[in-house]
Nucleic acid binder design. Structure first.
Lengths: 206, 206
DNA sequence: AATTGCATGTAACAGGTTACATGATTGC
DNA sequence: GCAATCATGTAACCTGTTACATGCAATT
């Protein structure tokens, strides 16, 4: 249900077509809320039906058109209302920690492989988010630049500060996941050293 | 798709009815993978249809029955295969960080309220997970006790160690979320002090 | 002329949520 | 007799995923 607010957040900066929106999306808000194009286009249509945004057909070349959306007053109010409403937290559903809880059921090799992949996964995210922090610091992210261009001077500092704050939180989270998995690798080493030669665990039930 | 593996993990300890499973679920694996009863019962039926588990009707009182499930060999193999397969990571979809990225669009009061709720939310989770760590340390979680009872002595240490490892990771995560939100509160204070009297931001578009 | 990018979707399915629905048994 | 709890689901809905489908425009 947050997708529409992510889209509204982008559109509040200025009108965009579905395609542009989708591109910007993956380069900005997509870092915290993923959505494929196949979800974005229908959601835009739905939002238009609910009068949160309005689309205008624009000619493109000789025959083609594109649909450029802008936020309506109702859309703006809906966004600000969402900002003030209590956030709904999804219930915990964490496959990595689920698996971690039962690592004794598999071989040390498989356990290590799982943790190494976990580290790789979060290092990819970390790199993305750190890159974004850099682009915030040097004010080079195009979406941020456009946003600042339509922001009152006295609000620009806040705008940048909250973006930085957001990505710092994501970076922290990634680091925690990585260091947790590294501790897991160490734990497996220790258990293996303590237990000596481990029997084939795939033979043991439970 | 992890629900069935969460259920298999519990059933591998010993046969349980849907109702018992659901109770145990919310007290153990439910801490990392939430599922309501309305999802558990149908999933058990599906797993039975796929021969991963088998159910036996047992009489209860005069007329009632209950269905007790146990893991089949195929179910056991499916669980171990899942443990060895690469984990599928869900795409990022984080409503709290999404909102954090646009806090400049709302009032400092609303921003603070959001962060305070975020802290409260994660403190609830933290308390649960720390409680679980305690019950692991004193080996008083009933599910863990039953698991250890059917575990080879030389594997008991590993079993406990991985449970502890899992919940330590969750605790770390909760702490990071809390300290992030606390930094956010401080940031709002600083911005307010620097900006002096802030104009009503609900009037400003973008 | 071919490739890359612009542009917009549909269809089928999986997974999860919420609300609703029903009845037996046990303990007080 | 009543309440709590044991016990098991169904139905409608929403969100999101994956795969498929189409065609124009601009550049090399």
């Amino acid at each position: 249900m947050s997708l529409r607010y992510a889209l509204l957040a982008l559109l509040r900066v200025g009108p965009l077509s579905g395609y542009e929106l989708q591109k910007e999306f993956s380069l900005s808000v997509g870092h915290v809320w993923h959505a494929p194009d196949s979800q974005i286009y229908p959601e835009l249509r739905k939002m238009e039906a609910e009068k949160l945004i309005e689309g205008e057909e624009q000619p493109r070349g000789q025959r083609a058109t594109r649909r450029v959306y802008h936020v309506t007053d109702a859309g703006d109010r809906a966004f600000l209302a969402w900002m003030q409403a209590p956030l709904e937290y999804a219930r915990v559903r964490d496959p990595a920690h689920l698996r971690a809880a039962y690592l004794e059921a598999t071989s040390p090799a498989a356990a290590r492989e799982f943790l190494r992949r976990h580290i790789a996964q979060w290092e990819r995210e970390l790199a993305q988010w750190e890159g974004e922090l850099l682009r915030i610091a040097e004010v080079s992210n195009p979406m941020l630049v456009r946003r600042l261009a339509v922001t009152e001077p006295q609000d620009r500092e806040r705008t940048i500060a909250f973006k930085r704050f957001t990505y710092e939180g994501l970076v922290d989270r990634a680091r925690v996941e990585i260091s947790w998995a590294q501790r897991g690798l160490k734990l497996i080493d220790e258990l293996e050293a303590a237990g000596g030669v481990t029997p084939d665990p795939s033979a043991a039930r439970v």
